[in-house]
């Protein structure tokens, strides 16, 4: 107690700064500010504000074309369009089923391939050569955006949902393996050690010591990926890989904005539903 009171009252304290050297600290602050101002200027200086002003009503008109969101809803009273509208709804239904099929199969295939790669990519359970190999696969899978892989797959397998399925499976591997591996790397080594000490074989060790620790996260990530794959299935369709994206592109190509709006609303609805049910399932898992 005596020691504490010796410390003079009124002694100031403030949290030590993250970057210790004041020169470097202020240099970074000022440098970042100058860069931000110049970068913003370099972009804004080229904007034609007159064009933006004229474009606003054009954008509003474009958006207006989406309403009401039902195929040919704005002209359906004029007669003769009911049949076309029905045909569009069938097209949408077909595209949707194709998309959902692509989503489910690609997620399932992706998970099956991701699990062994994820195990191999975890530094704490895989030997160095396996680790590097699996990390390599993940890096390749992650470095290409879905659309680029889709273009490649369409070129290789032709138009249609097969190209889309391969694309999404490939993209799933990069996502799921990486996050699974990271979860394994941050597991509690004590539990795994205890299972090893019983004289278990390697696969038994994984099944008892590792799997229970990472399973909730693996399921959560898989549900999330299902969600992503559905959204991506509508994007890869635009480059010809089948699914609702192809239907959407066709609708735009025909200037049938109300059909496009129907499709967009359905996509939003399904994503909402997926989000909601995934949340429910995840809550039950813990």
């Amino acid at each position: 107690m005596a020691e504490v009171s010796v410390r003079a009252p009124g002694r100031r304290w403030s949290k030590p700064p993250f970057i210790k050297s004041p020169g470097l600290r202020w240099g970074l602050y000022i440098g970042a500010t100058i860069y931000f101002v110049l970068a913003s200027y370099s972009i804004l200086v080229d904007v034609d504000w007159q064009r933006v002003y004229e474009g606003l009503p054009r954008g509003a008109k474009f958006l207006g074309g989406f309403f009401p969101p039902f195929p040919f809803a704005n002209i359906i009273e004029t007669g003769g369009f009911e049949e076309l509208a029905a045909q569009r709804l069938i097209d949408i239904g077909d595209g949707l089923i194709e998309s959902l099929t692509m989503t489910v199969t690609s997620t399932a295939i992706g998970i099956l391939i991701s699990v062994p790669i994820g195990l191999g990519a975890a530094r704490n359970i895989a030997p160095a050569p396996v680790y590097l190999f699996c990390r390599g696969i993940i890096a390749v899978s992650r470095s290409f955006q879905e659309v680029i892989i889709a273009i490649f797959c369409v070129a290789m397998f032709g138009f249609g949902p097969f190209a889309g399925m391969v694309t999404l499976s490939f993209a799933t591997i990069g996502f799921l393996s990486k996050l699974l591996a990271e979860d394994i790397e941050s597991m509690d080594p004590g539990q795994a050690e205890a299972i090893r000490a019983t004289g278990s074989r390697w696969p038994q060790w994984i099944n008892y010591g590792v799997q229970p620790q990472v399973m909730p996260r693996l399921i959560g990530l898989s549900l999330y990926r299902l969600d992503i794959n559905f959204r991506e299935s509508s994007v890869v369709g635009i480059v010809g890989a089948g699914g609702i994206g192809s239907t959407l592109l066709t609708a735009f190509d025909r200037y049938e904005y109300s059909t496009a709006a129907t499709i967009l609303l359905i996509i939003i609805g399904i994503v909402f539903f997926a989000e909601y049910s995934a949340g429910k399932i995840r809550a039950r898992l813990q």
């Binding site: 050690e193 205890a194 004289g199 060790w205 229970p212």
Partner: peptide
């Protein structure tokens, strides 16, 4: 050889998400 050496740990090192029975039976994995 490990089957003949049972180990007991400081932080128990039970597999948290397995049942008590699974944890006990994991001693038979060898």
């Amino acid at each position: 050889a490990r089957r003949r050496m049972g180990m007991i740990f400081q932080e128990y090192a039970l597999v948290e998400r397995l049942t008590v029975m699974e944890n006990v039976l994991s001693g038979r994995l060898g």
